[in-house]
């Protein structure tokens, strides 16, 4: 497979995953601000930070963190290069670039997502349409993953797609968890407060795993339990452990066609070791923010290594 194609597949998948995560962030933001009318701004500021658009927002809108402005900025504002529409466009451009490595159904699902969102997001989304809209985005991305599972050969292309998906998802989960833990609460006294609990619940809900959490940890919405669930629980499809172990599986498949392990395998193995080295409460004690920050950096280094060894660019 062409190095360029591997690059395009990885990024197509990453951008789709990213679009879905932006949608989930907006969902979390909407829920949080709905439950607490008085300080809407804090949540949206944090959500913008989590999506990496905080500075860009302030540059264009100052600190006017209203829901309408924040949602529009996250969804479709051309001043936000990381907005949902830009991610979908980038996914589709990458899809066109690697069209020959996709099945017709996968490509059409990607193109459909773009055509649908480009037309809906031609103008601001009314607040009443937002829930449907967000659900629609999740459906599109689920459909694409389903088409990948259902129609593609289990070859290199398949592995690069999933590698992109899981690296992006791990990155996004880490960022979101960090924002909730580090940015959202007004002060340390608020830990364990009603506000704290509500925020954790909304976050779980936006991931679609609130019921699952209940099954595992009951109603103990402590930072340690959340960290355990979102970082270490291998059954939870957005946890860092789950994402990295799946990424490792696809990297493993690739090594079979590429004659053995590489620097990327070693890097990922180290990341996974660090994840399983200590329980959640130790992580919290040693500093969750530092832990997540370090994780995000290591994932980004791993991406660079993968790009290098699989000759993504000349």
């Amino acid at each position: 497979m062409l190095g360029k194609t591997a690059n395009g597949l990885t990024w197509m998948a990453r951008y789709i995953e990213r679009a879905e995560n932006v949608a989930r962030l907006i969902e979390a933001g909407s829920r949080m601000s709905l439950t607490r009318q008085d300080s809407e701004g804090t949540e949206w500021s944090a959500i913008l930070t989590a999506s990496g658009a905080g500075w860009a927002f302030e540059e264009h809108h100052g600190t006017d963190f209203t829901a309408a402005k924040a949602v529009d900025f996250l969804m479709r504002d051309p001043n936000n290069p990381g907005c949902l529409l830009a991610a979908v466009e980038a996914a589709r451009t990458n899809g066109r670039l690697v069209r020959t490595a996709l099945t017709r159904e996968v490509w059409e699902a990607v193109n459909d997502m773009y055509l649908d969102l480009a037309s809906v997001l031609a103008k601001p989304v009314a607040r009443r349409d937002l829930p449907d809209m967000l659900q629609n985005i999740r459906r599109h991305s689920a459909l694409i993953r389903g088409m990948v599972s259902g129609t593609m050969l289990r070859n290199e292309a398949y592995d690069f797609l999933w590698l992109g998906t899981f690296l992006e998802r791990a990155d996004q989960t880490a960022r979101m968890l960090d924002v909730k833990y580090y940015v959202l609460l007004p002060n340390e006294d608020a830990v364990g407060s009603e506000l704290d609990l509500a925020q954790w619940q909304q976050m779980l809900r936006s991931f679609g795993v609130n019921r699952a959490f209940l099954g595992v940890h009951g109603t103990e919405y402590t930072a340690a339990n959340m960290a355990d669930f979102l970082i270490l629980d291998r059954r939870m499809p957005r946890s860092l452990a789950y994402c990295t172990s799946n990424a490792a599986r696809h990297l493993e498949h690739l090594s079979q066609t590429h004659g053995g392990d590489s620097e990327a395998h070693r890097k990922l193995a180290k990341i996974r070791e660090d994840l399983s080295a200590r329980p959640a409460d130790t992580i919290i004690r040693e500093g969750l923010h530092e832990f997540l920050d370090g994780f995000v950096v290591k994932i980004s280094e791993l991406s660079d290594t993968i790009a290098k060894i699989y000759r993504f660019t000349a």
Partner: peptide, 17 residues
């Protein structure tokens, strides 16, 4: 950008070489 000349051939850059 995928191609270059090498050893009497035009080669494409793939994930394996």
């Amino acid at each position: 950008s995928d191609l270059r000349v090498k050893n009497g051939r035009v080669v494409m850059r793939t994930t394996t070489g």
